[in-house]
Design a protein around this nucleic acid. Sequence first.
DNA 1: GTCTATACTACGATAGAC
DNA 2: GTCTATCGTAGTATAGAC
Lengths: 196, 196
Amino acid sequence: MAVEVMAEQGVAGLTLGEVARRMGIRPPSLYVYFDGKHALYDALFERGWRLLLERMQAAEARMEGHDPFADYREGLDDFVRWAVEHPAYSALMIWRPVPGFVPSDRAYAPAIALAEMGRAAIVRLRDGGILPPEVDVDRAYRISTALVAGVISQQLSNAPGESFDGGTWTAVLPDLLDMWLAHHRSPVRPSPGDPS
Amino acid sequence: MAVEVMAEQGVAGLTLGEVARRMGIRPPSLYVYFDGKHALYDALFERGWRLLLERMQAAEARMEGHDPFADYREGLDDFVRWAVEHPAYSALMIWRPVPGFVPSDRAYAPAIALAEMGRAAIVRLRDGGILPPEVDVDRAYRISTALVAGVISQQLSNAPGESFDGGTWTAVLPDLLDMWLAHHRSPVRPSPGDPS
DNA sequence: GTCTATACTACGATAGAC
DNA sequence: GTCTATCGTAGTATAGAC
């Protein structure tokens, strides 16, 4: 499996020869399934986002909640958990480790679907009274992605071996979500000269 | 210059031949300066962190401030600005794009010095009364790095061309710092069943 | 769908002359 | 410190038989 090779050798260290070896076939046989290395990366990129999308859809279906923010928190928890548990996929999906590789529109589709889910979740928080009516949905979404990306990025690059539970950086995710909620409930921008 | 090659071809796309070509010499001549490709990456890694360290030390010297939080905010601004303006360095420094490359202790030294600067800055905020005396310095530091890494990571991978001023993700950095400050002043952890 | 055989390219690295 | 020459390897990809 190509994903295992990426996990062991690094995303950019993926070679068709190694993939073929593990599949018990010869490199040329891979061309039956993929039109070359770029297409393989593209398929991996798409599958990664699709797996994560399905995970988030399952999480969404599982809730139907009386506490929308708890649901939201759980959703982002699931997101980060998946990312930390699939570091090879994550690196390919959120970083740019492969020189010259640009995902196709098709491969991007599930990532876009996830972004729409994220914005919809924020709209639900707004409509549920958790966030104020005047909240800037797009900005709040961008902030939330920065929080999530920050935790994932730090966890994967500084302590790749740690699990989601017990991770040095995943441990601060609850703080970040509390921060996020409090900020959107009462956005405070202290003026520089305010001595209070 | 090797940095330019990384910027154009991607960090993992760096080749000794291309570096030599731009220097107007032949590949074997590079071995006078570096003991091979790994050593080149190591030197780039170290130089990146050292440049950033020097930038942050200069920023620190420049302040001597009456408003410690404004100073802190400016410091993180500088940090993110440097990262966004040096995407090739940043990718090598905060991601893991090169299969098999592990920075040496020597190359890590300036990164460690920067981490100590970050913690010291938080201690100053605490001693200056901006943060409460009981603040968990290490945790607050980790949270701040997650914020910064999140913005940099999102900006570099989703909109690499944008400048620091006017960046889609750098634009939310002030929100994140406000959040961070407010959180540490009054950390709120709402219980799941709290209907308030 | 899988194989062998092979072409082609690229790269890292070393030896040794100047 | 730079060169030419070269080795060795690895990797992508294609052709064509089975």
